[in-house]
Amino acid sequence: MIHLSLPAALAALLAGLGVYGVLARRNAVLVLIGVELILNAANLLLVTAGSRPGAPLSAGPVITLFVITIAAAEITVALAIILVMFRRTGHIDLTAVPDLSDEPEPAGEGAP
C-alpha cells in the first residue's frame, strides 16, 4: 500500500524546481538540467497515475519509457547545438545578446 498523493506532491515539487532551474541559470547546459527536472516530474506523475489499480494498457510505465527515450534523443541534439554554439561564439551564456550579423552562405554549397 502506498498513498499516491506523496509521489504527486513530489512531482509538483520537482516541476517547480525545474522551472526555477530553467530561469536561474545562464549556462546552457545547466538550463538543460532544469528541463530534465520538469521531465522527471512528468514521468513521476505518469508512473503514479499508471500505478493506480486498473490503469489500462500499462500506459503509465510505457509512456514514461517513451519520454525517457525522447529525452535522450533531445539531449543528444541539444548538446550538439550547445557545442556548436560554444565553438562559434566562445561561450554558452544564454543571457548574452547574440551576434546576429548576417554572413554570406557558408562554403558548403556551391561557391568554391
Binding site: 522551472v19 530553467v22 530561469l23 545562464r26 546552457a28 538550463v31 544564454l94 543571457t95 548574452a96 545578446v97 547574440p98 546576429l100
Partner: peptide, 17 residues
Amino acid sequence: HRGVPSLSLLSLLVGVV
C-alpha cells in the same frame, strides 16, 4: 527581441504560468 534565449525562456514560462 534581440535573440536572447534567456529572455525567451522567461516570456515562455511567464506565459505558461
